[in-house]
Amino acid sequence: MAYVKTDWKAGDLITSEKLNNLENGVAAEQVGPAGKDGVNITGLELTTDSGGKVTGGTATLSDGKTIAVTVKAAGA
């Protein structure tokens, strides 16, 4: 759901509903910190086998480079 801003006026009552609306709007716009080289993952394409099991993939970084994604079985 898209954030809907509150137009505050003098004397308006601050309610938990309005504060939660603000908190949810802020949380929806958070971007994680840049990685150690100053880049973030902006896209992820996963590769699957014929049975639908994810076997690997490619991550696209904010600088346009791509890196291979390695998949390990749980507990491996």
Rank of each mutant, 00 (worst) to 15 (best):
S16R: 13
E23K: 11
T58I: 12
K53P: 00
G43M: 03
K53S: 09
T66D: 06
A28E: 06
A28Y: 00
T66S: 14
D12F: 07
E23L: 15
T48N: 09
E29K: 14
D63C: 12
V31D: 02
T66P: 03
E45C: 01
L13G: 05
G32A: 12
T60Y: 09
K53H: 07
G52Y: 06
G11L: 11
N21S: 12
A34W: 05
A28W: 00
L61D: 02
P33V: 13
T66K: 14
A28I: 00
G64M: 07
I41T: 10
A2F: 08
G32H: 02
G25C: 02
A74Y: 05
D49K: 00
G56R: 10
Y3D: 00
G56D: 08
K5I: 02
W8Y: 11
I41H: 08
N20R: 13
K36H: 04
I14W: 03
T58P: 04
T70W: 01
I14V: 15
L44P: 07
T55G: 02
G32V: 10
E23S: 13
K9Y: 03
T15F: 04
G64R: 12
T55F: 09
D12Q: 10
T55K: 12
G11Q: 06
V71L: 09
E45S: 15
D63Q: 05
T60A: 08
G57S: 04
K53N: 14
D63I: 07
I67T: 14
A73R: 10
V54W: 01
T47C: 01
G11A: 14
T6A: 08
E17I: 05
G75A: 03
T47I: 05
T60D: 04
T42P: 02
I67V: 15
G43T: 02
G35V: 10
E29D: 12
G25L: 00
L22Y: 09
A74L: 06
I14F: 11
A74P: 00
T60W: 06
Q30M: 10
A59E: 07
T58F: 01
T6G: 02
Y3F: 15
D49F: 01
M1D: 10
L19N: 01
N24S: 14
K36G: 04
L46W: 08
P33M: 13
A59V: 13
D37L: 12
G56S: 11
A76E: 14
L44H: 06
A59K: 05
V31I: 12
N21T: 12
Q30S: 09
L22T: 13
A34Q: 08
V69D: 03
L19Y: 04
I14G: 09
V54R: 12
A28M: 02
V71A: 10
